[in-house]
Every structure is written in structure tokens, then in C-alpha cells.
Design a protein around this nucleic acid. Structure first.
Length: 564
DNA sequence: AGGTCCGTTGCCAAG
DNA sequence: CCTTGGCAACGGACC
């Protein structure tokens, strides 16, 4: 029975993923003899268990209960990461470098994290075993090939992961492999939280807070990690690849300044917490979205996303800082509050059917959004003609990161604020480009910003002109990410179409030639004081010219005289 | 049950 | 420079 299933799965694995290995194995006839001797009975070699530690997220040694368990009483631990071409293969037709689903910045972040994980494993006498392929095929193959007794991986609540893991768990159980899959990506298990709430998914932050107690403490890192054996039984393992190895060549884009890895995550955590006053005063809504040399937040999100940093360690370290200070901010705005927002969206995402769609999503307002690829492309490519919006979108493409409030501004602009395009389209762009892209949090925030769920104050619109200006009146952020506007006087930087032609010429930036005119948009929900154009019968309002308030206009007129 | 409260992060103008 | 009030296509939780 075991031999049968091995043969069957083995065939597809070798033929589809590793043809050379398949040939080798077939030629020397080892597959047959191996399958006969294959057994998953413990003690088949008079030693401890053979554990496969499957890394997906949770790319760390600290606070990693799955890794810890795999090491307990093991003779060999096989630390594995499977690089799936579905996510990683270059897509030359994509609008920016990367695969169909993942931008090059996040791929790079992942590879750096794997490299760091490998280094940290090597410090413990082990190493990371990297394979290419579809994990649903590869992992069961490895279980058989290496006669694994125990499969350990971190519990993952995303729908894609739930399906994948259910399949693998089923096969593992069939093979007699014990599966250990602890919760360590989140502070709480969403299943427990929902059960605590009588089976109802909490849909407000406050309701969620009432359900949370003290999160579990981090577990210790393993003191020693039993190494995998030298002989990997013909399994083709590769070193952690570089971007070029995956087919990403001739990249001249500006790269994300945030490198991946557990080591960097812990360094950044220390750096973020060293200023206790900053930690205790932290209030997210007061942050400056245009600060980019020194961001206004911790930028720990990508490390949490990949699990380079444990949220439980972060939480514990935060509480330690709070306990040493009389006064500190509180949820929802505090740093602890940010971690709990993450938990909130994980819980809502787990408990809501079709959380990532409008249709079939019971908490999502059904809105007749526009399916306009021209608007979407202009937004995605930073070509809307609104410098604040475009600069943020360029930062997203180049760095894979932008401040939370910049995300709000551009998400509002694409959906209810200006373009009235499907939030799912914007979600896809974020999901591909953000280095901290996280299924539950990303979808939750797009539901929020499009006023589809959680939040419903339609008339609260971020102005594409004044919101950025409030934080950065000189336009340094805009000028950095949109160098075409670098010589535009600051008085026109947020509304360059209002600059007189003489000014545009002097700045080497003719609006409509060097930088686009602001897009005419269909708008259904801009507050009255911002509206221009003729309201239509369906309540939408067609914009042909952007708006500018009268006081802003007067200010420009005055500055224009002074400047020319 | 329907009224009231209130919700992580708006904008503008007036004082 | 603040803060404040008005705006009003909101809706879930709670009493």
C-alpha cells in the first residue's frame, strides 16, 4: 500500500519537477528497491524520529514551536523550503518586474529571508534544504523518500494555505506520518476567538478586543538542531537562489531599502523599541505618510508577514516597554493596537466566506464599481496626474512599501473617492507589489477603505491634493518619487496643472507632455464642497477639471506673481 | 424594537 | 498656531 502510493506520487514528482533525477533513479532501479523497503515505522533505524520541518512563513529560529517540536528527540531534522514557480516564475507581460502574482521586491525579500534562515541554521550545524516545485507534490514525495516520521509546519489560516495544508495533511496521515501544526503566526488562534464569541466572527475592533486575553508567550529557540543526513536519497536540493537564478535579469528599478531575514527583523525590533518615549507616545493616525527617509512607523510589517519576526515576541517586548513607563498609548492607535488590528483582520478573514471578494461576501456592501482598465492602469502606474497619488504609487512599485496613510489615500482615490474602480483590482495591485502583502490585512483594509465593510463614512474622502500637502508642504516626497516634478515650485507641486505655462517651461515639465493632466474621473461620493461639474441622474458626477478651493487658488495666484 | 451611541486615522472654514 | 463645528449616501452593537 505504502509502496503503491509512493510509486504513484513519486512518478509525478520526478517527471514533472525533476526530470534528471527521475532518469537517474529509473536507470539505476533504486526507486523500486527503495519503495519495497520504504517504511514509516518509528525506530526503523534504531534512532530518534526523522522530522521534516516545512518552512512557509515563520522564517525564523526564535519562537518557532514547529521547529522546536521537530528537534525534540530527532535523529535528523530536514528543514525544507519549497520554491513554487506558480508564485515565482518571471512574467514578462506583467506591468512591472516580477511574477504574475508577486513583484520582484517581495521575491527578493523572500530570498534574503531564506538566505538568512540558512545561515542561522548553519550556525546550529544544520542547513536549509531548498527545492523547486509545487509543495503539494513535493512535500508528500519527501515524506516517503526520506522516511519521515513527523511533519511540522506552522498553522496558516489563509484559504490557499488551508486547502494546500489539508491535502498534504491527508496524504501524510495516510502514510502514517504524524503532523504537528501549531499556531505561531498570530497571537491568537482565530478559531478559538470565534468559538469564544459563540461561533460569531467579531466584526468590530472593540468587539474583537473583548475576546482577547493574554497571548501565549514566545517559546525558546532550539538549543541544537539535528542536521539532515548527508545522503538525501537523490533528492535534488539547491542552494538559496539569487534573483538572477530565478530568471530576473537586467533589473534597473530602484530596490526596496528593507532587506529580508530574521537577523534584520530582530535588529529592527531592537532599534524600534530602544526609544521608549517614541514607543509609548506612538499613535498611528498621527504618523506622517510622506516621511520616507526615516519612516514614521516601525516597518516591521514585512518581517511579520514572512514570520522573520514573531508577533508574540514583538508583543512581549512591547509590554515590557509599557511596564517600565507610567503613561503609554493604547489600542487601537498604539503599537500594541497595531498588532491587534492584525489579529482582528486575521480573525475576520478566517470567519468570513469570500472575504477577498465582493460577490458572495456577506459583510461586503454590494456596489456597482466601474471596470475601467484605463483608470486602473493610470492609478497603478502613477499616471493619474495627481502628484501625491502618483508619488505614493511609484513608492509602492519601487520600494514595495508605503506608509499606512498613503495606502489609505491611494485606495480611497481608486475606489469611493475618485475613480470608482473595483476595490478588488486595487487589492490585486497591492497584493502583488507590497513586500508586507498579507491576505487578511490587505483585503480587510480594502474592504475598509472602499467603505464596503467595517467602515461606512462615505463622505470622508482623502483629498488627493491637500492630504499630502498637510504633511509635506515643500513636496519633498513628491519630488523624490516623481523626479519629473523636481524643479516645479512648491506652490504648484500638488496641483501642477495650475502652474502658468511660463512656470512649467522653466521647470522643464509641461503638464500634458512631461507629466499627465489630472484624470477626468467619474465620482459618486465626493463631498459637496469638493464637487464640480454637472451631477448626473444616477448621482454620479463627471469631472472634466480638477477642483481647487478658492483659498488655495488665491494663494497660487499670489505666489505666481512672486515667482515670475 | 427603534432609538441612541459611537467608531483607529476627513475636509474646510471660522474663531 | 491651535481647536471646534458642520457636513451628513453609515451601520453594527447595545439597551
Amino acid at each position: 500500500m505504502v509502496a503503491e502510493s509512493f510509486r504513484c506520487v513519486g512518478h509525478s514528482f520526478f517527471v514533472k519537477s525533476l526530470p534528471s533525477a527521475a532518469l537517474r533513479t529509473a536507470n539505476c532501479g533504486r526507486r523500486r528497491s527503495f519503495s519495497v523497503s520504504c517504511s514509516n515505522e518509528k525506530g526503523n533505524n534504531n534512532m530518534g524520529k526523522r522530522s521534516l520541518m516545512w518552512f512557509r512563513k515563520g522564517l525564523r529560529l526564535h519562537d518557532n514551536p514547529a521547529l522546536l517540536r521537530s528537534c525534540e528527540g530527532a535523529s535528523h531534522v530536514y528543514p525544507v523550503f519549497v520554491l513554487d514557480p506558480w508564485f515565482l516564475a518571471p512574467d514578462p507581460t506583467a506591468p512591472s518586474p516580477g511574477s504574475k502574482l508577486v513583484g520582484v521586491n517581495r521575491i527578493r525579500f523572500l530570498l534574503q529571508s531564506l538566505e538568512d534562515l540558512d545561515e542561522n541554521l548553519r550556525k546550529h550545524g544544520s542547513r536549509l534544504l531548498v527545492l523547486h516545485g509545487n509543495p503539494t507534490t513535493v512535500i508528500p514525495e519527501l515524506l516517503m523518500k526520506w522516511q519521515i516520521n513527523e511533519l511540522c509546519f506552522e498553522f496558516d489560516t489563509e484559504p490557499y494555505a488551508q486547502d494546500r495544508d489539508a491535502d498534504i495533511k491527508k496524504l501524510a496521515t495516510k502514510y502514517g506520518v504524524e503532523v504537528f501544526s501549531p499556531v505561531s503566526h498570530t497571537l491568537f488562534n482565530p478559531i478559538d476567538t470565534i468559538r469564544k464569541n459563540g461561533g460569531q466572527t467579531p466584526l468590530t475592533y472593540q468587539a474583537f478586543l473583548k475576546l482577547t486575553g493574554k497571548p501565549p508567550l514566545p517559546v525558546t529557540a532550539p538549543l541544537q538542531i539535528p542536521s539532515p543526513p548527508e545522503d538525501l536519497n537523490d533528492v535534488h536540493v539547491v542552494p538559496v537562489p539569487k534573483l538572477e537564478d530565478l530568471g530576473y535579469v537586467n533589473l534597473d528599478e530602484e530596490f526596496s531599502p528593507h532587506p529580508g531575514g530574521e537577523t534584520e527583523a530582530l535588529r529592527r525590533l531592537d532599534k524600534s523599541l530602544v526609544n521608549q518615549k517614541w514607543v509609548c507616545d506612538f499613535e498611528k493616525p498621527k504618523g506622517n505618510p510622506t516621511a520616507f527617509i526615516e519612516p514614521a512607523t516601525t516597518v516591521l510589517s514585512p518581517y511579520l508577514k514572512f514570520g522573520c519576526l514573531s508577533c508574540r515576541l514583538f508583543h512581549q517586548r512591547l509590554l515590557a516597554v509599557y511596564s517600565q513607563n507610567k503613561k503609554h498609548s493604547s489600542p487601537p492607535v498604539s503599537l500594541e493596537g497595531q498588532l491587534l488590528w492584525r489579529e482582528f483582520f486575521y480573525t475576520a478573514g478566517y470567519g468570513t466566506p469570500n472575504f477577498d471578494r465582493m460577490l458572495g461576501n456577506p459583510i461586503c456592501k454590494q456596489i456597482p464599481w466601474k471596470d475601467d482598465d484605463r483608470l486602473l492602469a493610470a492609478w497603478r502606474d502613477g499616471q493619474t496626474g495627481y502628484p501625491w497619488i502618483d508619488a505614493a504609487m511609484v513608492q509602492l512599485r519601487k520600494w514595495g512599501w508605503m506608509h499606512h496613510l498613503a495606502r489609505h489615500a491611494v485606495a480611497c482615490f481608486l475606489t469611493r473617492g475618485d475613480m470608482f474602480v473595483y476595490w478588488e483590482k486595487g487589492r490585486d495591485v497591492f497584493d502583488r507589489l507590497l513586500i508586507d502583502s498579507d491576505w487578511a490585512i490587505n483585503n480587510g483594509n480594502w474592504l475598509w477603505l472602499s467603505a464596503s465593510a467595517f467602515f461606512h463614512q462615505y463622505h470622508r474622502i482623502y483629498s488627493p491634493v491637500t492630504f499630502g500637502k498637510k504633511y509635506d508642504p515643500d513636496g519633498l516626497y513628491v519630488k523624490h518619487f516623481l523626479p519629473v516634478l523636481k524643479d516645479m515650485p512648491k506652490y504648484y507641486i500638488y496641483e501642477p496643472w495650475t502652474a502658468p505655462l511660463a512656470v512649467q517651461k522653466k521647470a522643464n515639465c509641461i503638464i500634458g507632455v512631461d507629466y499627465p493632466r489630472p484624470m477626468a474621473v467619474l465620482n459618486s461620493c465626493r463631498p459637496l464642497h469638493c464637487q464640480q461639474g454637472m451631477p448626473r441622474e444616477d448621482g454620479h458626477c463627471l469631472f472634466t477639471e480638477p477642483f481647487a478651493s478658492s483659498t488655495v487658488r488665491k494663494q497660487y495666484d499670489a505666489q505666481e506673481k512672486a515667482w515670475c
